[in-house]
Simulated scan of single mutants.
Amino acid sequence: MTAKFTVLREGAPTVVVVGEVDFANATELGAALAEVGDRVVVELSQTSYLDSAGLRVLFAHARRSALELVLRRGGPVEQVVELSGLTELAAVRYS
């Protein structure tokens, strides 16, 4: 299953990611993040897979902008995000 990226503009700008983020669609994630600007919440609690290409996009955005990640505790993406060190650059909360 590929990912679906939905941009929500009510309240804090949010990119909701559902499905798998990999090399094939990481540029779509980057485009969604660029669309909302410098402060963004990325809802990853419904993300079932995140590879290095997706991480690279998130790292790049976190280095230049305020980034908050929403993870599902015990979900498949939580450990990847924590082990990558992304939690040092982005705020994290759990759904």
Rank of each mutant, 00 (worst) to 15 (best):
Q79E: 15
R63H: 03
S84Q: 04
L50Y: 00
E35P: 14
R39F: 04
V42E: 00
L83T: 14
G30L: 09
E82H: 11
V7A: 09
V92W: 09
L58K: 11
T2Q: 15
T6Y: 05
L29F: 04
R39N: 09
G11N: 04
L89W: 09
A12G: 11
T27H: 12
V17A: 07
E35F: 07
G19K: 07
L86A: 08
A66Y: 07
L8C: 15
S45P: 01
A53E: 05
G75R: 05
S65N: 12
R56T: 02
A91C: 08
T87M: 09
L58H: 10
G19T: 08
S95Y: 02
L83P: 12
A31K: 15
L67E: 00
L29V: 05
T27D: 14
T2N: 15
L83D: 14
K4A: 15
R56F: 02
R73E: 14
V80R: 11
S95W: 05
A60M: 05
V36G: 12
T14P: 04
S65H: 08
T27N: 12
V40K: 01
V81C: 14
L86F: 05
A53F: 03
S52L: 07
R63D: 00
A53M: 06
R73I: 02
V36Q: 10
S48P: 02
V7M: 04
V70F: 03
R93V: 05
L44T: 08
R63W: 00
E10N: 14
L29A: 06
T14Q: 07
V81I: 15
E82F: 10
F5H: 11
V7L: 09
